[in-house]
Nucleic acid binder design. Structure first.
Lengths: 345, 345
DNA sequence: TTTCTTGCCGAAACCGGTTTCGTAAAAGAG
DNA sequence: CTCTTTTACGAAACCGGTTTCGGCAAGAAA
């Protein structure tokens, strides 16, 4: 025979109580004496009883699960950060005895459909929204359906939006100042796509860095929409083709920086020596590149864990102002930046 | 007021039926007339009714969810394949209206605990076991608890094990034969860890390839336990330090091949020209490496999708022999292999 | 016409929990 | 020592589905 799983009634019977009493004892109701509460807890451990979360869910409406919808067709920088991020999220979730339900989608509308389906079938009590856009339909949808969520990133209208984000503006500003302190005066910038909110954040850091360094902003040495190696290479070639090409370039995304390497070599120059490069993300490839890429490392595991905790609190206690957190990226100095080359001519 | 979700009773009331009848109509019972069945389906669509999966689960015992426990401390080659794999699994699952529950663990025993917890709380009806070991405790545990699973890979005792795997032996054999046809006679091999079943599979392919090429097996040019760049580099240095170093090296894992590149350069040689290299996995880094890595590409998205389908069939219909599938890896010819260098001396 | 099937649906139990409500016993107040 | 309040638990409803069982009505067989 299959060993039948033990239910709350088994626990109740073993103690001569009713299942209602056992349930209240386990859920911390105040009308249970300490004596019985302890007896119940002991018996639960003894019998190895664990409530079925979906049996609880039917009454409480909570499945104790976090939802995550990943859009994966975009063959962008999503890849490297995923494993760490998942590790963080599931850590944060399982610490509180929650689980994670993941789904994938292939387009923005597909993402919305998937979210809707998960909500309707109540597969999750709330959602983590990674890679937020400036204007994000997911947020609008979930707000309309009154479903809790937390952002990894920011968005235009942050009202009632619990969120966690890295201070990319600080990092990029620091990158600019660092290059300026090396003596660079022509510092270019390769940004990500403007639909992403992080691109605006980091661009802001670029400008404030220039201002603090007393350098004028020159749109001729700023590029956009580069999040892959190929796009980074193209953007780099455009920058280096300008009349007064930059001697240092900050990239909003590591993968673009790696593409920039190739562009630099196309011009017969050497990254790190002739043109300084500083990236952002901390992708593993950067450490193996030649020269190893100086970059700002983001701790995605920590991000995932914090996001899970924030979301659980949001689900349990509702929205409050203190559900907004920021963290910093860590500068990892390697070999791709330094003083500008001495002018020979 | 919050808009109450519509239940099966709402559908029943709207049609003047009982919820039991509606339930049977939707679940294909034969004692429902076609007329009412159609009326029910129309009304369901009209009202936008969707059953709560956890409400169904309480009676049926099925939560319609697949479980996946990833061990992520091992900072190995797991990383790149994850996004595609997840995309495949969730695709296969959601096509049948199932979902995916993921958890992570940091050690082998942690994995077992996590599996147990998910089973006890019934967070999943079955599990996908990635990266199978020769001797795998997860399999033993799930068999003992009578929980369905499917392997991505093989194991020593395959009895009653639904599985999907890539024919790594064929790929590696082809790699050896390809190198032999270029004229190589000293073909080395860098294997993965012997705890993984895939290492045995691919080693078998190496030997059979040698045999078909009429080359004797020489343990002096075979290395093991290399799954990272660093390990690959170390293994490569050992191979190249031998008395009669190989002119071509096959790697069981791409990341090791990328490490091998560095080892080759350490010896003042150039990968692809002086020493041919063929990898296996198809990691994206390989395409950007110099020279671009010739490798066997594994379609992890397809693997995930097939695994999900196999597992759902296993859960629904029980085990049968046709739940074992194999697929092939696709040779991607790039620039890291070719004829051996002409002997100058 | 009577009897036996068969088709089709209602009624109710059931799954494993949570929550409300009522009340006996114990404790406190007068 | 009575009366009121509190404590601590039992009883039962409830959540939203699924499944079993029984029976009415229509059609088939006798």
């Amino acid at each position: 025979m299959k060993h039948r799983r033990i239910t709350i009634s088994d626990v109740a019977d073993a103690l001569g109580l009713t299942k209602g009493t056992v349930s209240r004892a386990l859920n911390g109701y105040s009308d249970i004496s300490d004596g019985t509460r302890i007896r119940v807890e002991k018996k639960v451990k003894e019998l190895g009883y664990r409530p079925l979360s979906h049996a609880q869910a039917i009454r409480t409406g909570r499945v104790r699960s976090l939802g995550l919808v990943l859009q994966v067709n975009a063959h962008d920088a999503q890849r490297p950060f995923l494993a760490d991020f998942l590790a963080g999220v599931t850590k944060g979730a399982s610490d509180k005895n929650w689980t994670l339900t993941v789904a994938t989608s292939t387009s923005a509308t597909d993402t919305l459909d998937t979210l809707r389906r998960l909500v309707e079938e109540r597969k999750a009590d709330g959602f983590i929204l990674p890679r937020t856009f400036r204007r994000d339909d997911r947020i609008a949808l979930l707000k309309r359906m009154d479903v809790p969520f937390v952002l990894y990133g920011r968005t235009k209208d942050m009202s009632n939006c619990p969120s966690y984000d890295i201070l990319g503006e600080e990092a990029i500003e620091e990158a600019v100042l660092r290059l300026a302190s090396f003596g660079h005066r022509r510092i270019g910038y390769i940004n990500g796509g403007l639909e992403y909110s992080y691109s605006h954040v980091r661009a802001k850091g670029y400008r404030s860095g220039l201002k603090k360094a007393g350098i004028d902003y020159d749109p001729a040495i700023v590029q956009e929409d580069a999040v892959t190696v190929v796009q980074g290479q193209a953007a780099g070639e455009r920058l280096l083709s300008t009349q007064a090409p930059p001697t240092a370039i900050v990239c909003a995304v590591d993968m673009a920086a790696l593409g920039l390497y190739q562009a630099i070599r196309t011009f017969g120059l050497e990254p790190g020596r002739d043109v300084s490069v500083i990236g952002y993300d901390g992708v593993p490839e950067g450490a193996y590149a030649q020269p190893a890429l100086t970059t700002f490392q983001v701790d995605n595991r920590r991000a995932g864990e914090r996001l899970a905790q924030l979301l659980i609190r949001r689900i349990r206690d509702g929205y409050s102002e203190d559900l907004i957190e920021f963290d910093t990226a860590r500068l990892v100095v390697r070999a791709s930046d330094g003083p500008p080359p001495r002018r020979i001519s």
